[in-house]
C-alpha cells in the first residue's frame, strides 16, 4: 500500500449515520394482521438465506482479475449475454400469495402514484397558466403590431397621393382632365347653339318671301342658300384656320337678312375696304 493510499480517511463517521425516513423505514406491512406479517417475515428470511447462499458461492468462485481491457470487454459481453438469457427464461411470479399483503402493496403503490400524478397535475397547471399568460401577451402584441401596420399603410397611401400630385405625371393627368372637361363643355355649348339655330333661324322658304316681298321682281330663292349654322361655322373655321386673314367673301349663298343680323349685333364685321367680305368679331 503506497503512501497516498494509506492516509485516506475513507470512513467518515458523520456520513455513516443517515437520516432514516419515516415513510420508508415503516414498511408496507404496517396495516396487515399479525399472521400476514409473520408470513411476510418468513418469506424475507427465506429470501435472505438464499441470498447468503448465493453470496458464498460468488465468493468461492471469484475468478482472478484480469487487467486486460479487451478481456474486460469480452467479460462484459458474456455478462450481458447471461443476463439476457436470464431475462428470457425468467417467469414472473407473485410477490406474495397473501391477499392482505397484496392489498397493502397495491394501496401503497396507488398512493405513490397518486402523489406523483398530483405533482404532474400541479406542474401542468402551472405550465398552462404560464402559457395562457404568454398567449395574452402575444395577442396584445399582435394587436399592437396590427395597429402599427394599419397606420403605416395609411401613411403610405397618403404619401403616394402626395407624390402623384407633385409629380409631372400628376400634372399631366390634371391637365388631361381639364382638357376633357373643357371639351365636354364645348361640345355642350355647340350642341345648344345648333339647337337654338335650328329652332329659331330656319332657312327662308317661298311662302315667307311671298308675304314680305311684294315687288314682283322675280325672286328666285337660291337653292344653295346656307343656313345660319353653316355661315357661323364657316366664319369660325376661317378665323381659326387662318387668323391672319379671317375674312370670308359674301356671295349669293349667304342670305342677306342673316348677314345683316350678324353685322348688326356685332357678331361679324365688314372688311374696312371690301364690303363683300366679312369676318367674325374678335371674341378672344
Amino acid at each position: 500500500m503506497n503512501s497516498d493510499g494509506v492516509q485516506q480517511d475513507n470512513v467518515q463517521p458523520s456520513d455513516t449515520q443517515e437520516p432514516v425516513l419515516p415513510s420508508g423505514s415503516v414498511p408496507l406491512y404496517i396495516g396487515c394482521s399479525e399472521a400476514a406479517q409473520a408470513e411476510l417475515m418468513n418469506q424475507c428470511e427465506d429470501q435472505f438465506a438464499q441470498l447468503e447462499l448465493l453470496q458464498n458461492k460468488i465468493v468461492l468462485e471469484e475468478p482472478d482479475s484480469n487487467e486486460n481491457p479487451e478481456e474486460q470487454s469480452i467479460n462484459r459481453l458474456a455478462a450481458v449475454a447471461a443476463e439476457l438469457k436470464m431475462w428470457q427464461s425468467i417467469q414472473p411470479e407473485l410477490l406474495s400469495t397473501n391477499s392482505e399483503v397484496l392489498l397493502a402493496i397495491g394501496t401503497e403503490e396507488l398512493h405513490k402514484m397518486n402523489s406523483q400524478l398530483e405533482l404532474v397535475l400541479s406542474c401542468s397547471e402551472a405550465r398552462r397558466e404560464r402559457l395562457t399568460e404568454s398567449l395574452k401577451k402575444e395577442q396584445a402584441w399582435l394587436e399592437e403590431k396590427k395597429d402599427v401596420f394599419r397606420a403605416a399603410t395609411e401613411q403610405v397611401v397618403k404619401q403616394r397621393l402626395e407624390n402623384e400630385r407633385l409629380s409631372e405625371h400628376g400634372v399631366l393627368q390634371d391637365t388631361k382632365k381639364k382638357i376633357l372637361r373643357l371639351r365636354d363643355y364645348q361640345e355642350k355649348l355647340a350642341e345648344t347653339l345648333s339647337d337654338i339655330l335650328e329652332e329659331h333661324f330656319p332657312l327662308p322658304t317661298n311662302e315667307t318671301n311671298v308675304n314680305k316681298k311684294k315687288k314682283n321682281i322675280p325672286l328666285e330663292l337660291n337653292e344653295n342658300l346656307l343656313s345660319l349654322h353653316d355661315i357661323l361655322e364657316l366664319l369660325m373655321n376661317k378665323i381659326l384656320e387662318s387668323p391672319h386673314d379671317p375674312y370670308v367673301p359674301v356671295d349669293e349663298t349667304f342670305w342677306p337678312p342673316y348677314t345683316e343680323m350678324l353685322l348688326r349685333y356685332g357678331i361679324a364685321l365688314r372688311h374696312p375696304e371690301d364690303c363683300f367680305k366679312i369676318r367674325l368679331e374678335n371674341f378672344f
Binding site: 500500500m1 493510499g5 494509506v6 485516506q8 475513507n10 456520513d15 443517515e18 415513510s23 423505514s25
Partner: peptide, 27 residues
C-alpha cells in the same frame, strides 16, 4: 456527500469518501 445524505430516500444511504484507491486495510 452532504447533499446526498439530505435527499429524501426510502432506504438508508451510506456515503463513504476516499481520496484514492486502494482503500486502507484497517477499515
Amino acid at each position: 456527500a452532504e447533499t446526498i445524505v439530505l435527499q429524501n430516500m426510502n432506504v438508508n444511504v451510506n456515503v463513504r469518501l476516499a481520496r484514492s484507491l486502494p482503500l486502507p486495510m484497517e477499515n
